[in-house]
Design a protein around this nucleic acid. Sequence first.
RNA 1: GCCCCAGUGGCGGAAUGGUAGACGCGACAGACUCAAAAUCUGUUGUCCGCAAGGGCGUGCUGGUUCGAGUCCGGCCUGGGGCACCA
Length: 867
Amino acid sequence: MATRYDAKTAEPKWQRAWEEAGVFRAVEDRARPKFYALEMFPYPSGRIHMGHVRNYTMGDVVARYKRARGFNVLHPMGWDAFGLPAENAARERGVHPADWTYRNIETMREQLKSMGLSIDWSREIATCDPSYYRHQQALFLDMVAAGLVDRRESTVNWDPVDQTVLANEQVIEGRGWRSGALVEKRKLAQWVFRITDKVESLLGALDGLDRWPDKVRLMQENWIGRSFGLRMTFDMVTDAGAPAEGLEVYTTRPDTLYGMSFCAVSPEHPLALAHAERDPGLKEFLAECNRLGTSEEALEKAEKRGWKLPLQAKHPFIEGRTVPVYVANFILMDYGTGAIFGCPGHDQRDFDFARKYGLDIIPVVAPTEALDGDLGGYVREYGQRREVFTGPGRMINSGPFDGMTVEEAKEAAMSRVEEMGRGARTTNYRLRDWGVSRQRYWGCPIPVIHCDACGIVPVPRDQLPVELPRDVAFDVTGNPLDHHPTWKHVDCPSCGKPARRETDTFDTFVDSSWYFARFCAPQAATPTEREAVDYWLPVDQYIGGIEHAVLHLLYSRFFTRAMRDTGHVDLDEPFAGLFTQGMVCHETYRAADGGWLEPGEVEIRDGQAVAKATGAPVETGPAIKMSKSKRNTVDPEAIIAAYGADTARWFMLSDTPPERDIEWTTAGVEGAWRFTQRIWRTLDEARDTLPPAGTGVPADLPAEAVDLRRAAHKAIVAVTEDIEAFRFNRAVARIYELTNTLSAFRSDKAGSGAAVREACEILIRLMAPMMPHLAEEAWHSIGHDTLVACMPWPVADAELTRDDSVVIAIQVNGKRRGEVSVPKDADRETVEGAARRIDAVSKVLEQGEIRKVVLVPNRILNFVVAA
RNA sequence: GCCCCAGUGGCGGAAUGGUAGACGCGACAGACUCAAAAUCUGUUGUCCGCAAGGGCGUGCUGGUUCGAGUCCGGCCUGGGGCACCA
């Protein structure tokens, strides 16, 4: 009889058994309810990391659990395989991006398989494979035909290190999200997806995503940034009094029009550019603004600067009133019209600007306190304040609007401007169209041809895929495709004359915006197979990191809509359920010289962390996200080799709620490993007393055995609820409880063998989604020749999960004074009588008069006593 | 600056407005052992007490309630998101 569970031999054995039985192969079956479980697919960077282990463990628990619940489960895996690191590897190590990528995929596939995931590997896809990206090219052509794509000359964020365009979403604090380089602005023709065409749908449908975290929905809402306001045009005159072209502004505070004391335009505004032609000082000012760009906003946070134009804007409501017009560094060209009117009374930036340039500060909204008090004094002192009033109140200094609320005044002002024919109510969005052109080699080629005679010509369908050439040079900056001697030279499909291929490739977010649909029929000759996607989509449970809360998830939602428009799917929302898991963290270790040490290089001697090699003391830092730069990573492969996959999986699920960050600790892993052994030992010890597999539970059991059954059946209810609610840490605690109960039970108790067998089998099946290999080994060891992976989820017997008696807490004035055990649903008299027999209770009751007795059935009894 | 979220033992964390601290880690004590490891048993919020028992305890502070970790107001701290967004 084995006394130790040997993961090293058991895990590969059961992985082979699952594979040979084809347990996880998904086949459409309309007779059964489907469940599509998906984790965000990995970028093949080289090796899996602990974040992957956590992500895929959670997904695997869900997939295995749903399978046991009778669902036809699709649980695929693929590779987000295009991207910059492959090209960097080519530059740095001379290895071809394709070779580097496919080699990494090989390695990582084996690593993932060693985790024992219930993946249907027959559906594996890699986005860098022509068999995938040819369909992406076809989708693009369909989207062009459907009017969802534009080619636009636009100002783009240019990453000078990566030599590529970045989406606004990819610019973080003014720096490229991958390179970290300061981003510059450039004009470039590029392809854009018209995501703003779908903005109302993308925003409105968020409400229906009730199985998404509120946080993610809120982040998407903020990203889309809808606001309601007014576009209006001011008449303009030159300082000399000559008429000039009108200025269109956007405002969300038309109620404050009477407080207007200046207008301002963005440094990129045509008006600013036009005046700069004649004004060298302005030109220099614009250059300075441009240098600041979108970056370092913190540096210049307080510094609001303007340049006065020789123009005046006429107030639309006040005859004869004009205000100066500035170019100001805080106006964004991309938002609204790139021009504003300033009301320093009720906007902090306008206020700061007005103070700096000595402009009028006119309060036009007053809070109730001011209205009730000395309003004149309030107005006189307003300009001396440091902060403006932006709250609700009533209008002052505003002619016909005086006395209105802010909301009423907004309506009134907008109506009046509209009646005057000077403007219209509009809805404005922060969201901008999605530029997808990248000057990269290792991406999906954009399937168009530029012809001098015909313009832009789509590549004919029968010529897809446009394949990447293999022979490219990486020792040049910019796009290697552009430098290829022959690839871009083709004949125009339309007129036959020499023409040029588009050498830009797609943003890799395009690749990941539809892969979930491709998994439904990965071999299909068309991008999707309608039968398959209609059956499998939407993804029922999607799991990934919060870092994709905006970009990937918003793009995928857009793409699904675009695929519906082009007939490839018949739904709007790709992910019915979303879960965002926390990061995996670890302590950091720093040597005296400032260098970081890996966890494996550090040990504790006499309570002090020291470097193993030198014995020198090491400074221990707080647990932060595992990263190569801080060297606080732990290699999953080493952990799996040392402890087994089940231990790693169990650790990932224990203790910490899945949405929070988890700290990886050696003690924790060892604890998880000890538990696998403990389960094995417990089952091992019970085994000899068990009746044969398949033996039913007799009706006449000893009382202790009935208690054991109760514990087991209650565990079914609890674990089921916890898995359904993504509370894996609690499910784990329930399994500990059941194990404790089982190991404390004297299994030789006459006549209770069947109950012990039942409890063992329940324990094995409840832990199977989390520790699948151990479960199979244990299942086999107690006499089964089936696979747990194919067993249905245990069903709790309601008779056994119901309690006949309950313990009720007795309180006096809300303070706990004792407890009584009474039959379930006992009436007030019974409970109160039992409570009065408790000394501690009766003693206190004697000291005062009972005013009230509150009974919460089966929970609590509270005497309210007056002293 | 604005918008979210979170503050509970030594630690990770439990707790439909109803017995705060489940479960795990760590620690301590004991058993087994020549010894250690492993394993098993017990204790483990804090203070007073030999004990029985009692006082105090969920960041701070008010409130609602018979009853608040949970709900409401104000504050403090930490984390995340957005940001010259008109």
